[in-house]
Design a protein around this nucleic acid. Structure first.
Length: 222
DNA sequence: GACCAGGCACATC
DNA sequence: GATGTGCATGGT
């Protein structure tokens, strides 16, 4: 195996040993996962999860038409803990409209092949690459690696890439070297987030960081 | 009270 | 194509 692939696998094994399986995505149903992917945008999961729970309790994740028919102010009040409630409310409605137009629910939508499904999701207002890939990996069970701000920060702090690395370049680099199913890709992403929360905040806490051995690798990601 | 969090669309250059 | 800005709450 190539050196960069070995380094990536060692990183995964080390994080798995250090933190254990993360059991992501932390939402009970497919619609809750999809809504959660919108609600967590640029927000801590603690706030997003409250919003998901409130939508579930209100029954709005049992029926996309019902969510779409909910008055803005009602929706805003429910998702307020996630922040950006006006834009996220609009994005949830765009997602609902999309699912209704796609045949009513995610079962119809998820019959698409992965590239077509990704393109369709990216066509929804408020769904960018990270949100689309989160839905693909965790809700639609597709083998896709999700890149996020934490992922970029970890790899750039290790010196493996520049901090301005592009989403597609980092995703491609990982997926070319780390094969597996959706569960395995999801685990890698979840472990990276867990690690970043402990050691790679804006003020780094490198004491006890299990990844210090990775620093000896030179820049590897274009 | 400042800083930060599992993005995205849009305006402007 | 690159860069800047608005969106908002809740935890540390």
């Amino acid at each position: 195996m190539e050196a960069s692939a070995l380094a990536l696998h060692r990183l995964f094994d080390t994080l798995l040993t250090a933190y254990g399986p993360r059991h992501w995505w932390p939402a009970p149903t497919v619609p809750a996962m999809m809504a959660g992917a919108i609600l967590v945008q640029n927000t801590a999961w603690s706030g997003a999860s409250q919003a998901v729970e409130r939508l579930l309790a209100a029954g709005l994740l049992d029926s996309w038409p019902q969510l779409l028919a909910t008055p803005e102010e009602t929706l805003w009040a429910l998702i307020r803990p996630a922040g950006f409630f006006r834009v996220k409310g609009e994005r949830l409605k765009a997602l609902a409209r999309f699912l209704i137009d796609s045949g009513g629910d995610h079962d119809a939508l998820f019959r698409l092949e992965t590239p077509a499904l990704r393109a369709a999701l990216l066509g929804v207002h408020g769904v960018g690459k990270e949100t689309a890939d989160s839905i693909l990996c965790y809700a639609a069970d597709r083998p896709i690696f999700v890149v996020d701000a934490y992922t970029k920060r970890i790899f750039s702090r290790l010196g493996w890439c520049d901090d301005a690395v592009e989403y597609d370049a980092l995703q491609r680099w990982v997926m070319d070297r780390f094969s597996g199913d959706a569960q395995r890709y999801g685990e890698l992403h979840a472990l990276l987030v867990e690690h970043a929360k402990l050691h790679c905040r804006t003020r780094p806490r490198c004491d006890g960081c299990p990844l210090l051995f990775c620093l000896r690798h030179p820049r590897m990601i274009p």
